[in-house]
Structure formats: structure tokens, C-alpha cells
Amino acid sequence: METTFTPFASLSGGVLIGIASVLLMLMLGRVFGATGVLAGFFSPSSGQDFSWRAALLAGMVSGPLALLLLTGEMPTVQVPVSYPMLMIGGLIVGVGVTYGGGCTSGHGVCGMARLSPRSFVATISFMIATFITVFVVRHLLGA
């Protein structure tokens, strides 16, 4: 499935992600990692720990609706993946980010911005693995 090259939209989105990450550090002193926020939401250390995670997640989920109100359009979500593969992929992602201690936001953005050696290594590791997986799925298995 072809997609259009959108450098300006992607850069603007990236800048907003960066602003949100900086603001979360400024306000709560926390790294903006989707994995950590989500995992902690299900096993919070206290009531207050639960409430900020719930508020942050609620804000994240409101993103598409806010975009609809601002621009009149929902974000484009095209899923060229079957339901069984979404389930298998989701399960694998959940296991991987838990052992790896983060994902694209936590390691790839916040960790890299902090020049954390662990985050650099994690980001290189998952980028290579994703690249290889997409190559295998699309060009060797021909899905």
C-alpha cells in the first residue's frame, strides 16, 4: 500500500511530541514513555501515581478527536495487516517493550534526547529488527 510523503506534517507532529515530552518533564519530572505510562497505569504504586497516568492517557486518546475539531478530519489510519497478525504483533510488542524497558517514545525520543547510552542501543536494536521484519514479511514471505 502506497502512502504519500508528508515531511511537513510529520515534522510538525514530531515537534508537538517533543513539546509534550518537555512539558511532562517540566511539570511532573517524568520521561514520556508510552510503555512506562501504560504499564504503570495497570499496576500503579499509589493513587496519585494512577491518577496522573490516567489523565495523560485520556489526553493521548483525545488526540484524534481534537484533530477532528481543529481540522475537520480524523487522522488517517490504514491497516494493511490482518487481525491475527495484529494480535501476534501486539503480544510480541508488549513482551519486547517490557524486557527492553521502553519503546519509540521512551527510548527513541526521551532517552536519545538525554543522550542515554541504553536508549541509543535500544533504539538501534529495535530499528534494525523492525527493518529486517518488514523485509522478511513483505519481500521473502510476500505478504
Binding site: M85, L86, G96, C103, T104, S105, H107, I128, A129
Partner: peptide, 20 residues
């Protein structure tokens, strides 16, 4: 760290969604 991240990459490459 390295293995877990690689596993994450495999799942991301299969499903196309990351948590964020």
C-alpha cells in the same frame, strides 16, 4: 535491553503499531 528491544522491533514490523 538489546534482546527485548529487538523483540519489540519484530512485533512493530509485524503489526505496524508501536505503543505511542
Amino acid at each position: 535491553l538489546i534482546g527485548g528491544s529487538a523483540v519489540f522491533g519484530v512485533g512493530w514490523g509485524i503489526a505496524g503499531f508501536c505503543p505511542g
